[in-house]
C-alpha cells in the first residue's frame, strides 16, 4: 500500500520538467536534476576556456562552474540585453550552473505527451534532444543535460588548457 503511493509520487516527480527559454525556443529538463534557479551573478572567467564556458561563480561559499547553454547549443539569444538566469543543476553529484534566457515554468507531462524527436539530420543539437513535448500551440524540446554537458567537453576543456 505504502509502496504504491510512493511509486506514484516518484512517477509524478519523474514527469515534472523545468521549462526555460533559449532564444525563441522552449526547452525542458527533468526537475529532479535542478537544485535551484538564481539570478545572474558575478562570474569569474577562466582563461582560455571555450566560449560556452562562462567561468566560476560563488554559490553561497561554494565554487560552481557555469556554462552558457545558449552558446553551447549555438542558439542566438533573442534579445540583445537578455540578462538571463542561472539554473543550478545536480548532475550525478556535481553542481553545475547553466545560463538560460529565462525560466518559464514547471510542467507535468503525462505519459504519452513526450514523443521521440524527429529524425532531422541537422547539426549538433539533435543528439542532445531526447524528446519532444507537444502542446497546443508550441513544442518543448526535452534536453539530455548529461549529454549536453558531457564529460568529454570537460576533458577537452582540460586538454585545451594543457596543450593550448
Amino acid at each position: 500500500m505504502n509502496g504504491s503511493i510512493k511509486q506514484n509520487n516518484n512517477h509524478s516527480d519523474d514527469s515534472r520538467y523545468l521549462c526555460f527559454m533559449l532564444g525563441k525556443e522552449k526547452f525542458g529538463i527533468p526537475l529532479l536534476q535542478v537544485k535551484e534557479v538564481i539570478a545572474q551573478t558575478n562570474i569569474t572567467a577562466i582563461p582560455q576556456a571555450p566560449a560556452y564556458f562562462k567561468g566560476i561563480m560563488n554559490l553561497r561559499g561554494q565554487i560552481v562552474s557555469v556554462i552558457d547553454l545558449r552558446s553551447k547549443l549555438k542558439i542566438v539569444s533573442s534579445e540583445v540585453n537578455q540578462e538571463g538566469a542561472i539554473v543550478i543543476l545536480d548532475i550525478s553529484g556535481l553542481s553545475l550552473g547553466v545560463v538560460v534566457d529565462s525560466v518559464d515554468s514547471v510542467v507535468v507531462y503525462p505519459e504519452g505527451v513526450i514523443s521521440p524527436p524527429p529524425d532531422h539530420d541537422s547539426g549538433l543539437k539533435v543528439e542532445y534532444i531526447v524528446g519532444v513535448a507537444r502542446e497546443k500551440d508550441h513544442i518543448t524540446l526535452i534536453l539530455d543535460l548529461q549529454k549536453v554537458l558531457n564529460t568529454e567537453d570537460m576533458k577537452s576543456l582540460r586538454k585545451n588548457q594543457k596543450v593550448a
Partner: peptide, 11 residues
C-alpha cells in the same frame, strides 16, 4: 576552495 573536477589540473 577546490575547483570542480571539470576544472582540476589546469596548469
Amino acid at each position: 576552495k577546490q575547483l570542480g573536477p571539470e576544472l582540476q589540473g589546469i596548469p
